[in-house]
Amino acid sequence: MFRYILKRFLYMFITLFCITAATFFLMHSIPGDPLSYMAKKLPDQTRENYYEKYGLNESVPKQFGIFLKNIVTEFNFGESIRYPGRKVTETIVEGAGVSAAVGFQALFWGVSIGIILGVIAAYFRNRWPDYLIMFIAILGVTIPVFVFASLVQYLFTVKLRWFPTTGWGSWKEMVLPVITLALGSIAGYARYMKSSVLETINQDYILTARAKGVSEFNILRRHVLRNSIIPAVTILGPEIAAVFTGAFVTEKMFGIPGLGFYYVNSINDRDYTMIIGTTVFYAILFVAVQLVVDILYGVIDPRITLTKQE
């Protein structure tokens, strides 16, 4: 097990290096530069001074070398070019914290409600609770986030005026974005759980358990849930990673100062340092979560082994 984790860590670093290098060279190869937003032909001198200040006058491989050195020696991703004075790492920590505050609540409600609804739908297969839950789930999957967010926003902030439209700081400002974000998760988990539970309850061992006289609740708790939760755990991993990186549309609509903004806008602004910082951050989260999920499989289902058996 220890060797396995060590090996995975090694792979993780190789993956991260490849992602970093690919992003770095790709982003420098797209046309335009951080001054593009000026939308005007600047005098060569102005451009030269600017390039020199941000080290953009060096060749791209050399810039990459400097960049790597700063990361390895002091874990320094530099400063945003578009927003001078904003350290990339600080911005990521700040933004990811905000995104996570909303995202985890949404994920918590989404997973809990989704799993419960999925189990109910499976147990009441082809009866009205199943139809109702699947109707909600399909709505949740098909309604685009911005439509649902607009509806929620209009209803609760303009018509009823229960909550503020945008802003950040109090619990009131979190309610609507959490509802918006949770809807998708509820729908997703309900559907996964339903099909997974359906598969499990038709297994022979459930029949055996029933024949042995195990109570319905214990069958559900000890046999059904445990065996049908694996698909849910699989999708949970990347979703946890995504929680930190923020939901661009929802954050934009409710004015949440999360990280989603930087993922989209740094590319449009050609904010090189921010692009690479946010990408590496997501990559780290993603590979780390993958590792955790793989280890969790073994915990949930002892039949899954991570290392080849000798």
Binding site: Q153, T157, T166, G255
Partner: peptide
Amino acid sequence: KVIQDENAVYSS
């Protein structure tokens, strides 16, 4: 207030 979304501006 920093509001990027048009609809959110008008709701506000």
